[in-house]
Write a protein that binds this DNA or RNA. Structure first.
Length: 501
RNA sequence: GCGGGCAUAGUGUAGUCUGGUUAUCACAUAGGCUUGCCAAGUCUAUAACUCGGGUUCAAAUCCCGGUGCCCGCACCA
């Protein structure tokens, strides 16, 4: 579906809309409506079930979203997120100051004041890379983090977290103590991140405030055992750096064991990459031919990342592959920075081993981006009708309940719906207009099932009454005893989990 | 931020070039009648010219500006 069409449909159905719409809306801020909120919660539950389910040593926590200044200084965000911006007064293009001065000062501009950088620009007569004009402005700092003043005096300075990962690193020492003193130790966080983007774009893909689901796994670099056999034969759609450099854009399927044997990647990395890919394909139901594992080159990834593959999906609405998540091997960068910054030694002493500073494998996912992808990849036309083919456990509404004839079967249908709600299922009663329209409405909302109460249901009596159960994708119907509805639907919405090793 | 394009009910649109009746049509929403297993029919109701200024007897329509959105560039450790 095209971008405009998809966004209009999501607005109309109350999945999401621009924030502060009555004031004209603000680019980069969106509200989720009832369907969007329910879908987001289910997506987060599915993510947790899958990734925390990978190991009994992976745990979900919820850290603070405020980071004290000392934390972001240690993490490098204060430095790296405060980019001095230089604008050309002739063509008005904007650049980061360090990219302009790197020819004469390869060390970058860290620690220099804007005035000093301005002096370097003048002294070397540096020119605008875009139009060649020497009319470059004095740099102004552009902070990508939102500062907050804590307390009445505001002396305590903090920042809204620009990524959820830091909360996990801060929690590591405590988690080690409350845990069983063993590696690997996984810390999962689903939380908001805030970035003062220069130009938010494309609805849920560049936001001021967005939700990340991240799993930070702390492990012993000398050995990180994983049940690799589970994924060894899995073909993965990778696009590696060497093929990219030949101008290739399409992925090629390579078995996980090949990536280890001849691809130079460690087992623990490929295992988690493969499980992430399976989450996209098997849990979220993304078509395999729309997915790509995109390797980032030395210059593209952050310096502390040793291996990075972005997990991308080809989205028609956005006209190409878009990053939805990534797997980063970050080495021990984060813990060493926080050891230094906090003065607390974060190295650990596992039983029977020398003390060591754990390495980190980071699995990161953009929740909002996945919401868009779930719309793009699953919502579309099936002949005349518009159907949102969400996996049942993700669908905001599990079952629509209708009376065939409102005045005859309405009361009983309401009872059936109410009973399903009491059973913990997302059931929605509807008696508006014709039966066909109700099916159509439910198809568009992504409800995988509909139940219709008719004359037979009443005649058979409450003990062994049957109703028709209609499946969204096939439109097929079968008669099912009312008492079997709840168990059957519950089974259909059970969240997939990875197999235990 | 820069350049280009666009802006009409909840959604999608006609009308704008060439200013002039009560702003078109469909879907959606609410209600009535009818029907009764896949968006049927019928009646009724709700509902819009992005904002500000200018030109004119008269502006959705022409001009200027603001705002927003889309695309491209730049930005996205």
């Amino acid at each position: 579906m095209k971008y405009d069409e998809l966004f209009a449909l999501l607005r109309r159905r109350g999945v999401l809309w621009p924030s502060a719409e009555i004031y004209g809306g603000v680019q980069g801020l969106y509200d989720y409506g009832p369907l969007g909120t329910a879908l987001k919660r289910r997506l987060e539950e599915a993510w947790t079930a899958w990734f925390v389910g990978l190991s009994p040593d992976y745990h979900l926590i919820q850290p603070s979203e405020f980071l004290p200044e000392a934390v972001v200084r240690a993490s490098g965000h204060l430095e790296n997120f405060t980019d001095p911006e230089v604008t050309c007064e002739s063509c008005h293009a904007a650049f980061r100051a360090d990219t302009i001065v790197e020819k004469v000062r390869p060390d970058g501009v860290d620690g220099l004041t804007p005035a000093q950088i301005g002096e370097i620009l003048r002294a070397n007569q540096l020119k605008c890379p875009n139009c060649g004009s020497p009319a470059l402005s004095v740099p102004t700092p552009f902070n990508l983090m939102f500062p907050v003043e804590l307390g009445v005096t505001g002396h305590e300075r903090a920042y809204l977290q620009p990524e959820t990962a830091q909360g996990s690193y801060l929690a590591f020492a405590r988690m080690w103590d409350v845990g069983r003193h063993a590696l690997p130790l996984g810390i999962a966080v689903i939380g908001k991140a805030y970035r003062n983007e220069i130009a938010p774009r494309q609805v849920l893909f560049r936001l001021w405030a967005f939700t990340q689901a991240e799993l930070q796994i702390f492990f012993d670099p000398a050995g990180f055992p994983v049940p690799f056999a589970q994924v060894a034969a899995e073909p993965l759609p990778v696009l590696r750096v060497d093929r990219r450099q030949q101008g290739e854009e399409a992925p090629e399927f390579v078995r996980a064991e090949e990536l280890v044997r001849s691809g130079g990647l460690p087992e623990f990395y490929v295992y988690h990459l493969a499980q992430s890919y399976r989450f996209y394909r098997d849990v979220l139901g993304y078509p395999a031919d729309r997915l790509r594992l995109f390797e980032k080159s030395d210059v593209e990834r952050a310096f502390y990342n040793r291996i990075q593959f972005d997990l991308e999906a080809h989205l028609e609405s956005l006209g190409g592959y878009k990053e939805l998540g990534a797997v980063h091997y970050r080495g021990n960068y984060d813990l060493s920075r926080h050891s230094e910054g906090s003065g607390k030694d974060l190295s650990v002493h596992p039983t029977g081993r020398e003390p060591l500073l754990p390495h980190v494998l980071e699995l990161t996912f953009g929740v909002d981006r996945h919401l868009w992808a779930l719309s793009d990849l699953h919502l579309g036309k099936d002949g005349e009708r518009t159907v949102w083919k969400l996996p049942p456990y993700l669908a905001p509404v599990t079952v629509g309940v209708f009376p065939l004839i409102e005045k005859d079967h309405g009361a009983y249908a309401l009872e059936v719906a109410d009973e399903l709600v009491r059973e913990g299922l997302a059931a929605r009663y509807d008696d508006a207009s014709s039966i066909g329209k109700r099916y159509a409405r439910m198809d568009e909302a992504g409800a995988p099932y509909c139940v219709t109460v008719d004359g037979e249901s009443l005649a058979e009596g409450p003990a062994k009454g049957t109703v028709t159960l209609r499946a969204r994708d096939s439109r097929s119907q079968e008669r099912v005893p009312v008492r079997e509805l709840a168990p059957r639907l519950r089974a259909a919405v059970r969240l997939p989990r990875p197999p235990r090793s």
